[in-house]
């Protein structure tokens, strides 16, 4: 068993070296496919973070009447947090709202002076609510309308921003679907091209396969070396793609962070390096092995 395996591996590497030009061409095609796959993974992450960043800017605010008791507001906050649609709820008291207002207008002496002259805090306490998904804001607004604390709510910002939020929710949902579709299309094209290249590479050896059958090679003995070659193609293509892509990712990282605040593409690449490598190997080696097995099967039938 071990001897047979060792012989299969030996013939795999021998085939790889002795079919140098075919091996080189196949790796080149597989390399392009892996680069497309890596690009899809990176663009997928960039798109996801961009969508998250926009989504994070959407919220609805509930403003309370000026004499609303704080414990009533906090009760409403707790009730909101029990909803599965709610991601977070931030309470901003009247005093905090005033401090924020002062900070924001510290450079404007007219406004600062006008605030100082007022005897009473004119700002209202509020709850800022973020939903898990932008489509869920209407449900949260509905909950607020039906809650017993209606009498202390002065205003819910959703009614004013409803059209914008709904439109944004649709755009984000569409962007996600387009992203998935693009990934699928590109991955399919890459798989088909690589698959066909490996089919052609093995087709050029069909005479050799017939001779192996003639001298009594078992199906595993014939298939094995081609599977080994498929693995070698995949590993080399993935390693080469990683080496080629790394400097590009490093160079593009600062530009990406300008458009998407907080996004560190290089950090993402390094942080998920082994996951990235694993998926790529699964993709590259998977194509190599599966296409080899399928093509060889055709030549092993009587």
């Amino acid at each position: 068993m071990f001897t047979t395996l060792a012989r299969i591996i030996k013939y795999g590497f021998q085939n790889f070296w002795r079919n140098g030009l075919v091996s080189f061409a196949t790796i080149l095609v597989l390399l392009l496919a892996v680069i497309v796959f890596q690009g899809m993974m990176l663009f997928g992450e960039i798109g996801r973070q961009a969508i998250d960043a926009v989504q994070d800017k959407i919220d609805i605010s509930v403003y309370f009447v000026s004499n609303a008791p704080e414990d009533e507001i906090l009760r409403l906050k707790e009730a909101l947090l029990t909803l599965s649609e709610v991601k977070s709820v931030d309470y901003v008291s009247k005093e905090e709202a005033l401090e924020l207002f002062k900070e924001r207008h510290a450079d404007d002496p007219t406004i600062s002076q006008a605030i100082e002259e007022l005897e009473e805090n004119p700002l209202r306490a509020s709850l800022n609510i973020k939903a898990q998904d932008p489509n869920q804001y209407s449900l949260i607004a509905g909950f607020l309308e039906g809650d017993a604390s209606q009498n202390i709510i002065q205003e819910v910002s959703y009614s004013q921003n409803q059209v914008v939020i709904d439109r944004l929710a649709k755009v984000l949902s569409l962007s996600r679907k387009i992203g998935v579709l693009l990934t699928l299309v590109c991955a399919t094209v890459a798989i088909i091209i690589s698959f066909n290249t490996i089919i052609l590479a093995i087709y050029s050896n069909k005479e050799e396969i017939a001779i192996m059958r003639l001298v009594g090679a078992s199906n595993a003995f014939i298939r094995g070396p081609y599977v080994i070659v498929g693995i070698v193609y995949g590993v080399i293509a993935v390693l080469a793609a990683m080496i080629i892509m790394a400097p590009f990712i490093y160079a593009a990282s600062p530009y990406v962070s300008v458009f998407i605040t907080g996004m560190n593409l290089w950090g993402f690449f390094l942080g998920s390096f082994f996951k990235f490598l694993g998926y790529n190997l699964l993709f590259g080696v998977g194509i190599g092995v599966i296409s080899s097995v399928i093509v060889i099967r055709k030549y092993l039938e009587i």
Partner: peptide
């Protein structure tokens, strides 16, 4: 098909 190698 899988029995052929032994015969060959």
């Amino acid at each position: 098909s899988h029995e052929l190698p032994e015969v060959r």
